[in-house]
Amino acid sequence: MLQKKICMLGAYAVGKTSLVSRYVTSMFSEKYLSTVGVKIDKKTVEYGGETVMLMLWDIYGEDSMQKVQMSYLKGASGYLLVADATRRETLDKAVALHERAGEVAGNVPFLLVVNKSDLVTQIEIDDTALRPLIDSGWTVLRGSAKTGEGVEEAFSTLTGRLVGG
């Protein structure tokens, strides 16, 4: 069985833990509990006839006081950047984390999930903000850990890149 390590990266409170929880257990909670350190969840999936064990590294969110330690990314097969659609600054943080992640993990597959897209009246990350990233080749998905929209698609898209090369 293939094993693939996927890291979740993003600013604090963007919903990294909620996305993992939605994907692994189909559950969602409105309560915000900050992550400290890293929590590793596993999920076994079938992709293109292969059984793949995904090791999902839910890493604490970065804030002004605490940078994410990039040693967590050693050995990662890919990573998922997460931004909060209602907080514009979290997109900038995702871009900055991507640059630092590349130095440790190398040129591995990644994609950006713009989470909390169900909060339509509070959206700050609009298509204009995402256009330059898409134009430069990023895969960007809007999603919501609360409704489940885009969550399966995000992880399966990334898995496809890890397995398919």
Binding site: V36, G37, V38, K39, I40, Q69, S71, Y72, K74
Partner: peptide, 8 residues
């Protein structure tokens, strides 16, 4: 040496 702090 590589250190991964606070792994749950």
């Amino acid at each position: 040496p590589l250190r991964l702090p606070a792994v749950e």
